[in-house]
């Protein structure tokens, strides 16, 4: 992997801190320089990095830490705790409606993984919450988007509502919801076309769907490999739609997934799931602490702390 060198340096920085017992301000500065680099290489937004590093540095240079006998260990712990905290602390559950059906909308940039994740989510909630899902094909633009969703529906044996690609997505969403009620489905997941956050026409369309179906959740689906632009995208979708949560896809790759941190920070919205493969069962609830480890590339940071 490409980041091995960096992870090594980071671990060196931390382990020398750890061994030190008493640490000096300079020790902390040196370690924080490595942390900064690690976060940037992980695609955490540079502004978020700056804020993070400053806040950790402040805490770490506090009296108690510098004076304590295991100061090094404390600094490592501060980094880790701050990062998990930023990631959202606790794991967050999906919102369901008391009066069925519960309605979800999948939104995001082109190719992020909306359609696949719609299927995964339906499958997941059918299993874990015993829900009866229906998928709605509201992407009328991408060639064969409907075929894709229908194939996924067939693979999962979950009904897919479609009206072809000549009817407006708003109309499809409305009719789909009616149909779901008629069929006593208690979960409706609307797949929408990928779009740029700066595409006013298509963003308006999403607002109209939102108004028409009043969803319990609007998921912003984000590719974990996204770079610095993640904040622009997330901020803009959130501004225009007030998204409720985020799903991070393609985490089965070797990306560090620093976009997660940036998105969490700029939107304040929880990440609820991660996509970890192309198969329809590759969806997992999101664990903030694991993500914190991953971003710094320190799978065994916890053991480091424990051993210290």
């Amino acid at each position: 992997m490409a980041f091995e060198g960096l992870t090594g340096r980071l671990q060196d920085a931390f382990s020398s801190l750890r061994k030190k017992g008493k640490v000096s301000e300079q020790d902390v500065q040196d370690a924080m320089r490595q942390v900064r680099l690690a976060l940037l290489e992980a695609d955490v937004n540079y502004k978020v990095v700056r804020e993070f590093v400053n806040s950790v540095r402040e805490k770490a240079i506090g009296e108690e830490v510098l004076e304590s006998l295991n100061g090094g260990q404390q600094v490592v712990k501060i980094v880790y705790d701050e990062l998990s905290e930023l990631m959202g602390g606790e794991q967050a559950e999906v919102v369901t409606s008391y009066i069925p059906p519960t309605v979800y909308m999948m939104t995001g940039l082109q190719g992020a993984g909306k359609t696949t994740t719609a299927g995964k989510l339906a499958n997941f909630l059918r299993k874990s919450k015993n829900m009866k899902p229906m998928l709605i094909a509201a992407d009328i633009y991408r060639p064969a988007a409907i075929d894709q969703l229908q194939t996924i529906g067939e693979q999962l044996n979950i009904p897919v509502f479609s009206m072809g690609d000549q009817v407006s997505p708003v109309e499809i969403a409305k009719k789909g919801l009616e149909e779901a009620k008629a069929q006593n489905r208690d979960l409706v997941i609307i797949d929408t076309a990928g779009r740029l956050h700066i595409d006013e026409v298509l963003m308006t369309e999403l607002k109209e769907i939102k108004t028409a179906v009043d969803p319990e959740e609007i998921f912003l689906v984000v590719d974990a490999m996204t770079g610095q632009d993640a904040v622009n995208v997330a901020d803009s979708f959130n501004d225009q739609l007030d998204i409720s949560s985020v799903i991070l896809t393609k985490l089965d790759g070797d990306t560090r997934g620093g976009a997660a941190l940036s998105i969490r920070k700029v939107t304040g919205k929880p990440i609820k799931f991660t996509g970890t493969g192309e198969k329809l069962d590759a969806l997992e609830p999101f664990y903030p602490d694991r993500m914190a480890n991953r971003i710094l590339g320190m799978g065994d940071l916890l053991t480091l702390i424990e051993r210290a």
């Binding site: 490409a2 695609d43 490999m225 996204t226 770079g227 993640a230 790759g253 990306t255 560090r256 976009a259």
Partner: peptide, 14 residues
């Protein structure tokens, strides 16, 4: 390559 991709694109290319 998707222009929105960050540093992972280098891994992809390699």
């Amino acid at each position: 390559l998707d222009a929105t991709t960050g540093q992972n694109a280098l891994n992809q290319a390699k």
